[in-house]
Simulated scan of single mutants.
Amino acid sequence: MPIDEIDRKIIHATQAGLPLVSEPYQAVAEQLGLSAQAVMLSMAEMQQTGVIRRIAAVPNHYKLGYRFNGMTVWDVDDNQVDALGRQVASLNFVSHCYQRPRHLPDWPYSLFAMVHGKTEQDADQQVAIIADLLGEHARSHEVLYSTKILKKTGLRIGG
C-alpha cells in the first residue's frame, strides 16, 4: 500500500513514539502544520490498511523492575492451539501470545506466551498458572528468559 507525503511525515514524526503530553496528536499536528483530526484520521487509515500495525504503549519492563522476562513455549495440539492460545492470552500477566510454526524434530513448540516477573519466583508462578490452564494439552514446555534487551523500537524510515 503506497503512502502519500502527509502519511510519510506523520510516520516520521511518530516513529519514535507519540509525544508524552496531554494531547499528543495535537502536538504532532502542530509540528506538521496539520489539524489533530487530520493526524488521527490518517493514522487510523494507515492502521486499517496495515501500514501501521498498532498504536500502543511499549513499556521497558526492566525499568519497571521486571527483571525476569520469559518467553514460554508450549507443545500443544495444532487443532487446539487457537482456543488454548486465546485462554492463555486472556491471562492478565501475559503481555503477548501467539502461534509460531514448529521445526521438528528439534523444536516441537507452537504456542508462545511472554511473562514478566520482578523475581524469578514471580515468573515461575506465572508459568505454573499457564501449565495448570493448559493441563494435559501441554505435552511439553520451556521458558526462555531474556538476558539483555536487543531492540525496543520498530522500523524507522528516513524523513
Results as ranks from 00 to 15, higher is better:
Tyr109Pro: 08
Met114Gln: 10
Pro108Ile: 04
Thr119Leu: 02
Gln121Arg: 02
Val94Ser: 01
Ser110His: 11
Val94Thr: 01
Tyr98Ser: 08
Asp82Cys: 00
Gln99Tyr: 04
Val81Cys: 11
Asp124Gln: 14
Leu84Thr: 10
Ala123Trp: 05
His103Asn: 13
Leu111Asp: 02
Gln125Thr: 03
Leu84Asp: 07
Arg100His: 13
His116Asn: 15
Gln80Lys: 15
Pro108Gly: 03
Pro101Phe: 13
Asp106Cys: 06
Arg86Pro: 00
Val94Lys: 01
Val94His: 00
Arg86Met: 10
His116Phe: 11
Val115Ile: 15
Arg86Trp: 03
Leu91Tyr: 01
Cys97Ala: 09
Ala113Asp: 01
Gly85Ala: 12
Gln99Asn: 08
Gln87Ile: 02
Val94Glu: 00
Arg102Gln: 09
Asp106Val: 14
Leu111Asn: 04
Phe112Arg: 15
Tyr109Cys: 06
Asp106Tyr: 13
Ser95Lys: 06
Asp124Cys: 00
His96Val: 08
Arg102Lys: 11
Asp122Asn: 09
Leu84Tyr: 10
Ala89His: 06
Asp122Arg: 03
His96Ser: 08
His116Tyr: 14
Ser110Leu: 15
Asn92Arg: 07
Ala83Cys: 01
Tyr109Arg: 07
Leu104Ser: 09
Gln99Lys: 14
Leu91Lys: 01
Asn92Met: 09
Arg86Ser: 07
Asp106Met: 14
Tyr98Gly: 09
Val81Glu: 13
Pro105Gly: 07
Gln121Ala: 08
Met114Lys: 06
Val115Ala: 04
Leu91Pro: 06
Gln80Ile: 10
Asp122Pro: 00
Lys118Thr: 12
Ser90Gln: 14
Gln87Cys: 04
Arg102Leu: 04
Cys97Trp: 07
Phe93Pro: 09
Arg86Thr: 05
Trp107His: 11
Gln99Met: 08
Cys97Val: 06
Arg100Val: 15
